[in-house]
């Protein structure tokens, strides 16, 4: 434990091009870029598959990608693309490409699963009252799919944060550098400190996203709706709405 305090206590570790501040910034930056790229591909695709019911094999295919080891993929991509790219791009492009590919399955599964789990009667009613396809998608399907979609986003973010750490092995920046360099130098204060920072970052991001999800999802879907019991004219109430779960996790 002392070595951790020592490492965190040293002001030199906090600033500069390889200080905690810079590494944290890099980590967040990789995460943001990766999520943007992956979401831009996976979310529309997931919505499309869910809405039209076509191309379900895409989701199955993406899910089976779980079995491919992240580290192996990262190293293979770096070995292949690295020499072809100039300067820092040799590290960032292959890593971020792999990070983005790995973020696709949970995003896709969340978006598809969310739309797929929308109550059939509600969808039927949406068409029945005269909504057009797009109106059904945006006014009914997407709002009802949000809990699962956002679960997918949360899984993807956690996964990217974790995988970005591993991407320090083929040379990416970010908090993983402390761990990899620390182990290489037998500086376990640095390695442990880096590990702790990553863990705290992951938990914090998860917390923030969970709060965001609470704000975005309609209270009618979360069982947090305000006030009162239902008691008036009969007892045949609907079953309690359970928190919908789909396993969106791929390995990290």
């Amino acid at each position: 434990m002392n070595i951790l305090f020592e490492w965190f206590g040293d002001p030199a570790n906090w600033s500069g091009a390889d200080g905690i501040g810079q590494r944290l910034w890099e980590h967040l930056w990789y995460t943001a870029v990766t999520m943007l790229v992956a979401s831009a591909v996976a979310l529309p695709l997931g919505l499309w598959v869910g809405h039209t019911g076509r191309g379900r094999w895409l989701v199955t295919l993406a899910n089976s990608a779980r079995a491919v080891p992240t580290l192996g993929l990262l190293l293979a991509a770096s070995l292949w693309l690295g020499p072809k790219l100039p300067g820092d791009f040799a590290y960032t492009v292959p890593s971020i490409a792999v990070l983005a590919i790995l973020a696709v399955p949970p995003l896709l599964a969340g978006a598809y699963g969310g739309i797929d789990s929308v109550d059939g009667a509600a969808r039927d009613a949406a068409y029945g009252v005269g909504m057009r396809g797009r109106q059904v998608l945006w006014q009914v399907e997407v709002p009802n799919a949000l809990p699962l979609m956002l679960s997918g986003v949360r899984s993807a973010v956690l996964q990217v944060v974790a995988t970005a750490t591993i991407a320090a092995i083929p040379g990416l920046g970010g908090l993983g550098r402390f761990i990899i360099d620390g182990i290489a130098l037998a500086d376990y204060g640095q390695a442990g400190g880096g590990a702790l920072l990553v863990a705290v970052l992951a938990v914090l991001l998860e917390g923030i996203l969970a709060l965001l999800q609470r704000r975005l999802v309609s209270p009618g879907l979360t069982g947090r709706a305000v006030g009162g019991s239902r008691n008036d004219d009969d007892s045949a109430g609907p079953e309690e709405s359970a928190d919908p779960t789909v396993d969106l996790r791929t390995s990290v």
């Binding site: 009667a121 969808r123 039927d124 009613a125 029945g128 009252v129 005269g130 009914v140 999802v217 879907l221």
Partner: peptide
Amino acid sequence: AELRRGIGYVIQHAGLFPHRTVLDNIGTV
């Protein structure tokens, strides 16, 4: 869609939109 907007439609399990309040559900059409 226009045909359907001119026809009231009630189904077995009501098919209310779970994410909308009762008033918003009624005001859909």
